[in-house]
Simulated assay, not measured.
Amino acid sequence: MSDINLTAVRWMKSSFSQQGGNCVEVAVVPLDLAGAQWVKSRHSGNGGNCIEVAPDAPGVMPVRDSKDPEGAVLLFPIEAWRSFVAATAAGEFGDI
């Protein structure tokens, strides 16, 4: 994620977080994906349980739910995404 300016990140806590420091925060990253070309895997069926990725983003792999294209986008460092894809192809998560 070295191509993203992390000084402009806005951190948010879940509305379910309790007081006392046992919280998870998420970063809202300023990345313009308006012109992104979203694609689904060629293995995706028509059942609607698909994700889409935008492979041309700099240094990250944006992932979204194809049923909610205006919803949240998860950003994974590109090397982490490549490791995930390789592990999935090797069957490390079982028969998916």
Rank of each mutant, 00 (worst) to 15 (best):
G20T: 08
M61I: 15
E92Q: 09
S66T: 15
Q37C: 09
T7Y: 13
A57S: 11
E25R: 12
L6T: 14
M61V: 15
V28T: 01
S41Y: 12
E52Q: 14
G45P: 03
L74D: 02
A54P: 10
Q19N: 12
V29Q: 00
S44W: 11
E70A: 15
A57M: 09
S14V: 12
A36L: 06
A36K: 07
A8M: 06
S14T: 08
S83W: 01
L31S: 05
A89K: 06
W11I: 05
D68I: 05
V53M: 05
E25C: 09
E52F: 07
R10W: 05
F76D: 04
A27I: 01
S2D: 14
A86S: 14
P30I: 00
D95P: 00
V53L: 08
H43I: 00
A54F: 12
R82V: 11
W81H: 02
G94E: 04
D32F: 09
I51M: 07
A27M: 06
W11P: 01
S66G: 11
N46Q: 15
I51T: 07
G20H: 03
D65Q: 04
D3I: 04
R42A: 15
P55R: 09
A80H: 01
A90S: 04
K13M: 15
D56N: 15
V73K: 04
G21F: 09
L31M: 01
G91V: 03
K67S: 09
V53R: 03
G91E: 00
H43D: 04
A27Y: 00
K67H: 02
A86E: 06
D56T: 14
A27W: 01
A36G: 05
P77V: 08
R82E: 11
N5H: 01
V9G: 07
G91M: 00
C50H: 14
V85P: 11
V28D: 09
S17K: 06
P55G: 10
D65C: 11
L33I: 09
R10Y: 03
V60Y: 13
P58Y: 07
W11V: 08
S41Q: 07
M1N: 04
E25V: 10
G20Q: 13
I78E: 06
G21Y: 07
S17G: 06
E92R: 07
V73D: 03
R42S: 13
A57F: 08
F16K: 10
A36Y: 11
G59W: 10
H43V: 00
S17L: 10
V24W: 10
V24S: 02
W81Q: 02
S2F: 14
V24N: 12
S2C: 14
A72G: 05
N46I: 12
W11S: 03
N5P: 01
I78Y: 03
G91Y: 00
A80T: 11
V73E: 00
A36I: 09
Q18K: 14
L6R: 12
Q37F: 06
S41M: 08
E70H: 07
V53N: 02
S17E: 10
V73H: 02
V63A: 11
V85Y: 02
V60N: 08
